[in-house]
Amino acid sequence: MDNVHDMGGMQAFGPINPEPETEEPVFHAEWESRVFAMTLLSGFLRQWTNDMARHARESQNPVTYLRNTYYENWLAGLETLWVGSGQVTPEELAKGISSGKSDIQAIDAEKALVSVKGAGGPVDPEAPVNAGLKVGDRVRVKTFHPMGHTRAPRYLRGREGVIDRIHGRHIYPDTHTVENVEDYPLYSVRFEGAELWGPDGNKRSAVYADLWEPYLEQP
């Protein structure tokens, strides 16, 4: 979905104003840490995928998305996902009161710690990649305007770059649901700064983005 989460190249957000590294806490309020952990634990239950979770956050009204702090967007996404899964009713969410136990088994602490440390690639790393493009190939990012989730940023669409490396086959986020898992070759593509931002762009800069084969075409 083309929404304000896709921020590459936007202007007028002002200075970054980073907190000093040595002074910044991991969480700025206790509720942030609870939202963070609940989001991970809920995700482990496989009622939705990581891409569906991103889409839930990204498809909010853009004004809401920008007004919210980071973990407020996670909270909004988590509420949407649980209601969307059918496991929590809107009434339960509004009142915060359960009308009955779920038949899903919660992830315990031990399993949770194993899950966050688990190894393993997005798809079988031993499987042949069958890449349709090779390192050095010139490619253009397709122009499209998807209502659903995508990881092809707007600032790259229609722009040309060069395949820098092949990352293997990865799950395709645009169609990724619990029931539907497709995988395609994933490429790191190098775009020159001037190709993206014109002659006024930063001198001697390049952007590398990871893009799935269906996003790319031969120019």
């Binding site: 609870r34 952990a37 609940m38 634990l41 809920s42 239950l45 649980w82 496991q87 929590v88 339960e92 009161i97 359960s98 009955g100 136990k101 779920s102 899903i104 088994q105 919660a106 992830i107 315990d108 602490a109 399993k111 949770a112």
Partner: peptide, 11 residues
């Protein structure tokens, strides 16, 4: 309450 999240796992 719905048994979907274990508070010890959050901690």
């Amino acid at each position: 309450d719905k048994g979907l999240v274990d508070p010890a796992a959050i901690d």
